[in-house]
């Protein structure tokens, strides 16, 4: 097990290096810089700023310098939010984004797995069609459509729930979490149904039935673990997607999370912030993928142990 994790971590290193290098040069080679948009600063001031931020040095020198800094965990100061470091900004946005993602994931797993399992028990009946149609709606209603619709209907017309902010008024966390979780619930529901159908058609389910195991125990004890394999392998991409999806949801609901900072930083050409956040996201995604693989392997006895006792 430790060898496996080590191997995967080693594989992640080149990925991260590519991300860092590509984003660094992409940002630097693009036209414009963080100060060019502000109204005509005096030439000396510009020059001073550029020297201060070491923008006047050769690109490669800057790149090596940057690598050295991030190796020590220093992502540098933000260009736009003067006086704040990138690390501080990420640190401020992270808890919000994580909390949002965690709620969304919880909703997605609860709704997705239960509806998918229910659908798989009576395929091609209304018990299957209703959740699967809902799932299809979920897949075809992207968060930037679903979010505004929920805001309009639940928030503005019915006035049931607040429509913006995060932790300011009770209940303001509900709509964003639902908006973000719904799509994933839809995917998970379809995967869970497929996985369960596959497992329920296996010979060993017939064995369980022949032993006199009740239908509910067949589902819970015999089928669920195998049937959830596709869901588990989807967790890696899902977690990455929940982070990416936060751009839209955080914009719609005006939530001060990482996603909003990121889009703003990109528009502002806040070099250090863009780079810092890109790298941070990449690390998160790599780590989540790794975790998902480990969980998947742990859930499957065939992958967990390599020994095969003969006889």
């Amino acid at each position: 097990m430790p060898a496996f994790i080590l191997k995967r971590l080693l594989q992640a290193l080149p990925v991260l290096l590519i991300v860092i290098t590509a984003s660094f040069f992409m940002v630097r080679l693009a036209p414009g810089d963080p100060f060019s948009q502000e109204r005509a600063l005096p030439v000396e001031v510009m020059k001073g700023l550029r020297t201060y931020y070491k923008l006047d040095q050769p690109l490669v020198t800057q790149y090596i310098e940057y690598l050295k800094n991030i190796a020590q965990g220093d992502f540098g100061p933000s260009f736009k939010y003067s006086g704040r470091t990138v690390t501080e900004i990420i640190g401020a946005g992270l808890p919000v984004t994580f909390e949002l993602g965690a709620y969304a994931l919880l909703i997605a797993l609860l709704v997705g797995i239960s509806s998918g399992v229910i659908a798989s028990l009576r395929p091609n009946t209304w018990q299957d069609y209703v959740p699967m149609s809902l799932a299809m709606i979920g897949i075809c209603l992207p968060s930037y459509v679903l979010g505004p619709l929920l805001v309009l209907i639940v928030g503005i017309w019915l006035e049931w729930l607040p429509v913006s902010g995060w932790g300011y008024i009770p209940g303001d966390k509900i709509l964003p979490s639902v908006t973000m979780g719904f799509v994933y619930a839809a995917y998970i529901s379809r995967l869970a149904r497929g996985g369960m159908l596959e497992i329920l058609s296996q010979d060993f389910i017939r064995t369980a039935r022949a032993k006199g195991v009740s239908e509910s125990m067949i589902v819970l004890r015999h089928a669920l673990r195998g049937g959830m394999q596709p869901v588990i392998s989807f967790m890696g991409p899902a977690l990455a997607g929940l982070l990416g999806g936060s751009f839209v949801v955080e914009t719609i609901f005006q939530i001060p999370g990482l996603g909003r900072y990121y889009v703003q930083a990109a528009f502002n050409r806040d070099y250090t912030l863009i780079l810092g956040m890109t790298i941070f996201f990449a690390v998160l995604i790599v780590v989540f993928n790794l975790l998902a693989d480990i969980v998947a392997a742990w859930m499957n006895p065939r992958l967990r142990s390599g020994k095969s006792a003969g006889g």
Binding site: D203, F204, T207, A210, H222, G226, N300
Partner: peptide, 11 residues
Amino acid sequence: FQDPMTSLNPF
């Protein structure tokens, strides 16, 4: 059953 490979629950 016939096939002992698939008749036992692998999980």
